[in-house]
């Protein structure tokens, strides 16, 4: 009887081939996730546009970074680590009547009922009127700029987290992560947009 078995294929070089492919992929691909601080630039105004409305000085939180990376907040020297608390105090002040929020069916501006600030008459009147103005010098280091941006964004996140905890018993950041996993969930979207309307992020970037 003739032998029917096929001779065994030598698989010794299989590992080498696989290693070669592996090294190719290691070299040509990257693993970095695209993440960063998102901001929206202001729209460009046409030259014949009407003058922008005058904003009261008390509604503007002025942060200036000079060419030596020193910080001036509302006319006083400050450190990067102080930015967050100062910004929170300013946004959350709630000293008066804000813009009407059409999403809540308001026709006239209301007081900020969810603010817990000091209600100082010389600070912002309402979160939706509170503007943070970040002015930099051309020679400011980008690293410092990002640190300050991060703290300003952090102030909004802290406030939104607090509000969300009170309203829904859940942190705002947790709702956002949940929405990432469960895309298109209308309930979560509604919660997020409600909190965003109550504490809208208004940061203006300018150059000195």
């Amino acid at each position: 009887m003739a032998r029917r078995d096929t001779p065994e294929i030598n698989a010794g070089s299989m590992a080498d081939i696989a290693f070669l492919l592996l090294i190719f992929f290691l070299v040509t691909t990257t693993m970095d996730v695209d993440a960063g601080i998102s901001r929206r630039l202001p729209e460009k105004q046409p030259p014949e546009a009407p003058d922008p409305p005058i904003i009261k000085e008390k509604n503007v939180f002025e942060v200036i970074i000079n060419m030596k990376d020193e910080l001036l907040i509302e006319g006083e020297y400050a450190k990067v680590k102080d930015v967050r608390q100062l910004a929170i105090d300013f946004i959350d002040n709630g000293g008066g009547i804000g813009n009407p929020i059409s999403d809540f069916g308001e026709t006239e501006g209301q007081e900020c009922s969810w603010c817990q600030g000091a209600k100082n008459p010389d600070s912002s009147v309402h979160p939706n009127k509170a503007i943070i103005s970040l002015k930099t010098d051309r020679s400011t280091t980008y690293g410092t700029f990002i640190k300050v941006q991060n703290e300003l964004g952090g102030a909004y996140t802290d406030l939104r987290n607090r509000l969300s905890q009170e309203e829904y018993g859940q942190l705002y950041t947790d709702i956002v992560t949940e929405l990432e996993k469960d895309k298109g969930n209308e309930v979560l979207k509604g919660k997020i947009s409600r909190i965003r309307t109550m504490y809208p992020e208004i940061i203006s970037e300018g150059e000195n």
Partner: peptide
């Protein structure tokens, strides 16, 4: 009008 900007950063 490319208004959406992200400043890349590491966590």
């Amino acid at each position: 009008d490319a208004l959406k900007v992200t400043y890349s950063a590491r966590k």
